[in-house]
């Protein structure tokens, strides 16, 4: 069970959240190219290691959280609010 320490609600099971993928991509601004939007939608980090990802706490505070999680061990290292950038371990 992945357990996420929500900054608003405390430690909760993964079932309370909805995953929404890579949290490092940034939506291009108005007038950006098709290429830029293509990358926003389709070019996603898929590392074997630390991954920064969106989790939506739908059954809690309804906030999007930035979670730093390892894709081999599933360890959750950091949880940040949507507007913060958590520290990502090198290894």
């Amino acid at each position: 069970m992945i357990r996420i320490d929500c900054p608003w609600c405390g430690v909760r099971d993964e079932v309370e959240f909805t995953y929404r993928g890579d949290a490092t991509v940034v939506r291009p601004g108005e007038g950006a190219s098709e290429e830029a939007f293509h990358d926003f939608v389709y070019k996603r980090a898929n590392p074997r290691g630390w991954h920064v990802e969106w989790w939506y706490h739908g059954a809690g505070c309804r906030q999007f959280l930035k979670v730093v999680r390892h894709t081999m061990t599933h360890e959750v290292r950091a949880v940040a609010r949507a507007t913060e950038m958590p520290e990502v371990p090198a290894e």
Binding site: M1, I2, D13, E14, V15, Y19, G21, N46, R48, H51, E53, R69, T71, M72, T73, H74
Partner: peptide, 13 residues
């Protein structure tokens, strides 16, 4: 399970 992983194991939900 619905989150990126390279581990060949899932969880209870």
């Amino acid at each position: 399970d619905g989150w990126n992983t390279y581990a060949q194991r899932g969880n209870l939900p």
